[in-house]
């Protein structure tokens, strides 16, 4: 099926190439989101490294607050990106493959 990706019938704004571009955009969105989520993950590691949970120094309060904010931001933004951007794009591509399966001679 991929060998037919250059078929002019499947190129253009409503064709196969459009869905491949969508898939590429989805991958880029995932990588960007991965970076944002990694920040929160590193925040949690920072707290563990500093042993901040066990003390209440002002530096630890700031580190803890940043880590908690990072966890919430990373988790919620990744959730929203997956829900409203990644999944719809993936479903579009799945539909495109289904369409090709049905109409390929």
């Amino acid at each position: 099926m991929l060998a037919r990706a250059d078929d002019p019938n499947f190129s253009g704004p409503m064709g196969f190439t459009h869905f491949l571009a969508l898939l590429r955009e989805t991958e880029e969105a995932m990588v960007t989101q991965l970076g944002e989520t990694a920040l929160s993950y590193f925040g949690l590691i920072g707290v563990a490294l500093a042993g901040c949970v066990g003390s209440a120094g002002i530096g630890c309060v700031v580190a803890g607050a940043l880590a908690i904010a990072g966890l919430f931001h990373g988790g919620i933004s990744a959730f929203l990106t997956i829900l409203f951007r990644v999944l719809p794009d993936v479903f579009d591509v799945v539909d495109a493959f289904h369409f090709l399966d049905l109409h390929c001679p």
């Binding site: 803890g64 908690i68 959730f79």
Partner: peptide, 22 residues
């Protein structure tokens, strides 16, 4: 701080859950 960190860890379960369910 401890409770907020634990809730934050729970929030991190939302993306994989959304991906898995979707």
């Amino acid at each position: 701080t401890s409770v907020a960190l634990l809730i934050g860890a729970l929030v991190l379960t939302l993306p994989p859950l959304a991906l898995g369910v979707g």
